[in-house]
Design a protein around this nucleic acid. Sequence first.
DNA 1: CTGAAAGCGCTTACAG
DNA 2: CTGAAAGCGCTTACAG
Lengths: 336, 336
Amino acid sequence: MGITTRQIAKQFKIHHSTVSRALQDDPRISEARRKEIKQFAKKKNYVPNMIAKSFFSKKTYTIGIIVSDLTNSFFSTVTKGIEDFVNQKDYSVFICNTDESIDEEKKDLNTLLEKRVEGIIVASATLDKKYFSELSKIEAPIVLIDRFPLNAPLSYVGINNFEAAYKATKYLLSLGHRRIAHIMGRLESERMQGYSQALKDAGIKNTSNYITQSGLRINDGYKAMQELLKFKQRPTAVLAVTDAVGMGAIAAIKDEGLDVPRDISICGFDDIEYSQFTNPPLTAIRQPVYEIGRRAAEILLNDIKNKHSDLRSKRTHVLLDTELVIRKSCKKLKQK
Amino acid sequence: MGITTRQIAKQFKIHHSTVSRALQDDPRISEARRKEIKQFAKKKNYVPNMIAKSFFSKKTYTIGIIVSDLTNSFFSTVTKGIEDFVNQKDYSVFICNTDESIDEEKKDLNTLLEKRVEGIIVASATLDKKYFSELSKIEAPIVLIDRFPLNAPLSYVGINNFEAAYKATKYLLSLGHRRIAHIMGRLESERMQGYSQALKDAGIKNTSNYITQSGLRINDGYKAMQELLKFKQRPTAVLAVTDAVGMGAIAAIKDEGLDVPRDISICGFDDIEYSQFTNPPLTAIRQPVYEIGRRAAEILLNDIKNKHSDLRSKRTHVLLDTELVIRKSCKKLKQK
DNA sequence: CTGAAAGCGCTTACAG
DNA sequence: CTGAAAGCGCTTACAG
């Protein structure tokens, strides 16, 4: 193992507390001593033991991030936003994937707490109120991202999902579509509600007819679209819960010998980097993904700093703006 | 802060070592004691302090991963592969982004070492031999991925880049292309060499004419392609150093009013999930990305376990197979 | 300017 | 079956 302050001290026949002080540039230690100690430490590749430091100071300079799947472009981008921000402040980050399992999430949470992270950012695999009220009792600051019940007793940053989905659906309606389907996510019911409301506001009944549930990945979208394709009256447009699902849907449509947007229009949600390159380029709601991560990190670090003061914002709720990015995957329907 | 073993001990007027043992299910502690202690601990939300445990045991159950950019599909997939594997063994992972900066990489490495990770997996931002020989002196096991000089004095897992690029270039040649360009990466010179060798073997001189260097992202590919488009004799095919670069190249070609593959064929490298959805679908060399992560994790954990024994494989070199996935972005040239 | 002590929360030999 | 002690590598009041 690495050399310790005690071993350095022995070398100079001094006390290890002096070594500790010299290494910290304590002005009370004489210039000469400091120099020789630091030089020796360097030569011996001394690496301060943060575990011991943390043990003493109660500061670990680490936070944890819990997401469902890093492979998902949304989550890797959020994570990058978080990492970039906290790194500047000398924090490290533990990353945990839950694969949408709430049990895994609880396990991860526990591990993080055992490792004494100073704060946690979580995109939860559940929306269970009880769970969140438990979370809010945890001492370490927590910031929710992406998934959260509005008015959860915790800080969160994300978007207004209802509004965004409403906006997307209205766009589809404005193109003349009436049979608009929605491939919804397990936890993305706000988006589904925004979709439904838009249909209702347009005077469309039975808005739940064309709703099918799916996972968030490409394959999930493929399968969900296959289901929608079985309807005798096929939808003419589909609002997908994520871009990846939208891509899967496009693939399913093509495999059926149909065309996007000629036969069916597709609107995505996220606007990941690759969506501009699909065929056709995907029209989608854009979330400021990186920014979501950055803001969450900012709030978390702030809560950590003010942990013991009243400045701690136990409940900062940030909803960032979304934007409908119109590309080529949605077609205007001819008037009948 | 959370409750400690001492506080629990006080509650029952016993010694904290007894509490420690009860919590560990030490059979020497009486059934009754154990039960009441565990129950009380649970009620009080006792969370064992891993920092203290690590401090004692010298095991932190954490590893570090250093990559250039998590936003890059390749790296997030590798990371997932690593995480999934080590999680089963109860390890946590620190994730560090270097953004291709070697200074940042060194800083990250140092932080990881201070935090006493038990091992590190790194996709380095450099190929400097001196650097790697320094790395090899570090006590913690290290496994290199993606970027490494062949025969580096460290374990690594990746692919045979030379061979893969050779294979891709040969495919382009077989399609009748002669003016084949290569958008190379800063560190991907093996791929470039495979490309050059294939051209040479086909009797093509001046193989460096059509080589241009670029970053690894979409935008980088866009800019690099713009340069290639300026040649009086434009290339008829391009081997891109990554899929993302290939996508950028396609965009640049289209923006110039040209078509892929009609005017220029594009071959990617990686075969990320999104490449099947581009327009046209991207022909690319497929790397077993997730598997690279998994294997690297396996070797690392093995080295950690055998750290002090001869079983430690200080230099396991694994090169996984690649495959050329033919889709629609490369066209057969007509015979003249 | 430097030293000796105490303590952070655990665990594990050593006793009994 | 349980206790008391020592120690992991640091830091920081307290002395002098």
